[in-house]
Amino acid sequence: MVDLEKHMKKGLVERPTGAILAFADYTSKMPNMIKFTVGEPDFNTPEHIKKAAEKSIEDNHSHYAPSNGTLGLRKAASNFLAKKYDQHYDPETEIVATNGVTESIYDMLTAVLNPGDVMVIPTPIFPV
Rank of each mutant, 00 (worst) to 15 (best):
G11T: 15
I121T: 08
H61Q: 13
N32V: 02
A22M: 04
A82E: 13
G18A: 13
R15D: 00
D59S: 09
S28R: 15
I121Y: 03
T110L: 04
A76H: 03
V38N: 10
K10M: 08
V112H: 10
D59Y: 10
M8R: 14
L113R: 07
D25G: 07
M33D: 04
K55D: 14
L73Q: 11
E5Q: 14
S28T: 09
K75V: 09
K83Q: 14
L21E: 12
P122D: 05
V120R: 01
T27H: 02
F23V: 07
R74T: 06
M8T: 02
E40N: 04
K75L: 00
N44L: 08
T37R: 05
V128L: 11
K10G: 01
Q87M: 15
A52V: 02
M8E: 07
H88Q: 12
T27W: 03
D86K: 14
T93H: 00
E5D: 15
L73H: 07
G69V: 05
E5W: 12
F23T: 03
K51P: 00
L109F: 09
A97G: 10
D59L: 12
V118W: 09
M1G: 12
D3G: 11
T37P: 00
G116E: 06
E14M: 07
I57C: 10
V120Y: 09
L12P: 04
P115K: 03
I57E: 12
T37D: 12
R74D: 03
T110Y: 11
A22K: 13
T93L: 03
K10Q: 11
L71V: 07
V96D: 06
G72D: 09
H48Q: 09
S62P: 01
T45E: 04
V13R: 08
P124K: 02
G18I: 06
L113Q: 09
V118D: 06
I34L: 14
H63E: 15
N60R: 15
T17R: 14
F80A: 15
A52G: 05
V96N: 02
K9Q: 15
L109I: 03
I20W: 13
H61A: 07
E5Y: 09
E103H: 09
P91T: 09
H48K: 10
K29C: 01
K84D: 05
M30A: 13
N79C: 07
M108K: 11
A82N: 08
D86T: 05
R74H: 01
M33S: 11
N68P: 00
E14D: 08
M8D: 11
I57M: 13
